[in-house]
Design a protein around this nucleic acid. Sequence first.
RNA 1: GGACGCUUAGCUCAGCUGGCUAGAGCACCUGCUUGACGUGCAGGGGGUCAGCGGUUCAAGUCCGUUAGCGUCCACCA
Length: 898
Amino acid sequence: MSRELAKTYDPKGIEDRLYQKWLDNKYFHAEVDRTKTPFTIVIPPPNITGQLHMGHALDNTMQDILIRYKRMQGYNALWQPGTDHASIATEVKIIEKLKEEGIDKNDLGREGFLERAWDWKKEYGGRIVSQLKKLGSSCDWDRERFTMDEGCNQAVTEVFCKMHEKGWIYKGSRIINWCPVCNTSISDAEVEYQEQAGHFWHIKYPLVDQNGQPSKTEFLEFATTRPETMLGDTAVAVNPNDERYTYLKGRQVWLPIVNKAIPVVEDEYVDMEFGTGVVKITPAHDPNDFEVGKRHNLPEVNIMNDDATINENGGKYQGLDRYEARKQIVEELEREGLLVRIEDYSHNVGTHDRCKTTIEPMIKKQWFVKMDELIKPAVEAVKKGEIKLIPERMEKIYYNWTDNIRDWCISRQLWWGHRIPAYYCDKCGEIVVAKDAPSVCPKCGETHFTQDPDTLDTWFSSALWPFSTLGWPEKTEDLAYFYPTDVLVTGYDIIFFWVIRMIFSGYEQMGEKPFKTVLFHGLVRDSQGRKMSKSLGNGIDPLEIIDQYGADALRLTLITGNAPGNDMRFYYERVEASRNFANKVWNASRFIMMNMDQEEEKTGKRGWETTYEEIRESLYPVDKWILSKLNTLVKDVTDNMDSFELGIAVQKVYDFIWDEFCDWYIEMVKPRLYSTEAGEEDGKRAALWTLQNVLISALKLLHPYMPFITEEIFCTIQSKEASVMVSDWPVFREDRQFAKEENAIELMKEAVRGIRNVRTEMNVAPGRKAAVYVVSEKEDVRLIFEEGRQFFTSLAAASGLTVQADKNGIDDSAVSVVIPNATVYIPFEELVDIAQEIERLKKEQKRLESELARVQGMLGNEKFMSKAPKQKVDEERAKLEKYAQMKAQVEERLSQLM
RNA sequence: GGACGCUUAGCUCAGCUGGCUAGAGCACCUGCUUGACGUGCAGGGGGUCAGCGGUUCAAGUCCGUUAGCGUCCACCA
């Protein structure tokens, strides 16, 4: 069988082909199987309007790594995929598109609009899914769900009705955040505060005199950032403890422009220290004022229409936009002599996170979820550690929200979404909340009802995602088996929107947590650390990266060099480094396969078909060394992955493959592979066996991170039908730890490095070989070099190697390299400058001395000796011995030269 | 106002529960057509781990504090 492989790895073509193969073989599909332990992840459903961005790429790469890892470990791994209807985001997009066609939403009507929305979903809903596939995501696509599919709709209705019955969902008239552009209420979580440069208008209202008329001499001064709201003022407030204003008790002020008297009320809410200690109260347009108004039974005067223009309560200002009204009102106040001064003022303004419009607080009748009781189990779960947040610091952010939680406004004045299952009797207005439209009014017997026109906050359905996707409210097998899920992977930016809401919903509806662990990641930023955004145009399209460098390179880039929860910067240079690694893996494999081919042609046998037991006797120390290193790697990587340290895990695999395996092991076995000497057949077989087995294990460890290239190589080595993704995850084996061989090879590496070092320093031409002598009094050390003679001479550019117990017969002017328990001599003849050589040895002596001083300091410290763990003390003792011994060798050599 | 995070090589960052001579990638310098790979190989320079104080036998790692940068929450009108 010939394996002609290209010199560089080209992911094009390979990735799609392999993904299709995985799909065809149903490797992603999971079914209930009681003989296996489930491992479940639910995808954070991407919006149907969405395009894959770097955040998705990171999020889904992490999930794919975990799911592939667990699948290989033998778990029944389910990655439940799906998409989100994204009510407001989608509705806005559709409105935009209609606008291009010159159509207004209202012209279409609700039905017509929804038709267009479903068309949109059909057209674009699949786009993000196909993009996730490009990444290599091993989701069980047979189970793909949508937040507005039949099952999810049922779940939503069920939850709404249940919670309403329990009294935890209620309709109430309260102050809410209104977006005048999107024309809907939004929840507190959707308000984004932005620092804005504005003004502080210092204004005064006349006091009302005994005759009920505005006083010409007495005024009350205060300041406001929103002068137009004065149209809705129904009081002015001072702090009851403010002695400056005790005289105001029971008095009234005259509201200019509106021309009416309003009371002065006393409320602790007013900060005496701030400004004049006087606050105008507009209960209908400010959340704090709303509370004050409730306490003092103040009237609530709504002065705005839904589009933030002034309504009929604004008198002559009716019809003006809020900002135009502001301008004109200020002008009128100035004319009246009531404007004291204008101050520049920078303050935070609440905006709608989607469209950045300044929100307007308004009193409206909306549906709310009562949070105080609901949140309790969700807080407890994290406190007790039943749900683990990674990194831990996210817990503080979590509690910060849960501790200050307010009722959740869930109704939206939108069409695209789950319609609220509330019905109003056409005759008496009675509200009936039910799964289906009622037939008779329980109060008046009327048979005609109108359903509430509002839809639900898009997060209402996402909150149910971990169980609605598994079949709830039906009691399905899937639900019983796969719930609770294991890990949720998401960005910290949606902790309030989604994570918390899933947790309390899980406890409330299922009586059980939705997941055991939440693994947070940060934001992917551009190379300058800026958030990638459309408006900045600094977004990098993951699909372009995949096209250019391959999905594996992208995945590796996103996972390495980053700690959980931290933001990361995206650099092309880093993708290139990842691509280079892929190429390295490719070429190492190519090298191994080429040698396999040669071997196979001769013997008809493949190395990997031989068992360890069959080959064990033929293994060389270097073979055992790399097997031992691999064994340790398996343990470390498994441990890291179990504790979600994905970046650390893959870094170790990377280092092992590149440094240990490619730069050392492969180079070490080359002479053996190329040897034509008789009697080397067993050794050659052992090398090939080791190369292949180490490679295959390394590919397995790498597979969750770089699924495509590992699969391609795995199949090329074994067969097209084989698959690394369903192979067994490597396990640590006590019987494959070879401490003795590890030490031996490390010692030889040190000798090789020393020799290369000296050669470079002396400008020895790479092609010039030189005789090398290894002198050691210790027999075991001599044996190590004898056994490794073949590769040692190659790596050390030696023309020949002599291993002996003393310095006899070695030219005095030879260059020397001191390693533990041995000195290496290289007679370079004319190249050697004795003075320089002495200089070099003295430097080495100095280095060893300072090391010794440090170690001796520690060992001479009584407290260290008595308090440090024994293992640590032993380590330091061993170091002392090693350095002392090396120093003696250096000094002996110096005395010979001087 | 409250909380959190970051500050480690020229750049971007790792460094988990304190314990080798503090690491990686990129960049830089020197050399290399060594039969897998120049998307490579070999060698090298470069850090008082932000400052100060403390705990400890031992601090990049823990505690306190200061400064700079960043994020989240609250929102005093």
